[in-house]
């Protein structure tokens, strides 16, 4: 497996892996903030929202110039998957900006 191939495969799941981490992070912060009555709870949530979107945005811009058969096909799937992950991040985490965090 060449380096380019491995890269294409990793890219295919990178976006949604980042999305999963963002999900766990936000859900965790929400729970901790309520359990320990954080004063700046909302601000922390919004900051976390932005922080999780950054890698997703970056990933959805990477276009690998993959040479050769498997890598090129997978690279295109990866681009779609990473853009989907960005969109999923923007939409699913958006409630962090307004929804009631502790009731």
């Amino acid at each position: 497996m060449s380096a380019g191939d491995r890269r294409a495969l990793i890219l295919l799941i990178a976006g949604f892996t980042a999305w999963s981490f963002g999900f766990v992070l936000l859900y965790g912060l929400q729970a901790l903030g309520c359990a320990y009555d954080w004063p700046a709870h909302r601000a922390i949530l919004i900051a976390a929202y932005i922080v999780t979107l950054a890698p997703l945005a970056w990933l959805s811009l990477i276009k690998v110039r993959a040479e050769g058969e498997p890598a090129s096909v997978l690279a295109l799937s990866a681009l779609w998957a990473n853009r989907a992950a960005l969109a999923a991040g923007v939409l699913t985490f958006f409630p962090a900006t307004f929804a009631s965090a502790c009731i």
Binding site: L91, P95, F98, A99, S100, I103
Partner: peptide, 18 residues
């Protein structure tokens, strides 16, 4: 989906025991 989820969330907020 965006419209539907948005509406449902706003409605859900209103139903909460604030």
């Amino acid at each position: 989906l965006v419209l539907l989820t948005g509406t449902a969330l706003v409605l859900g907020e209103q139903l909460l025991p604030h």
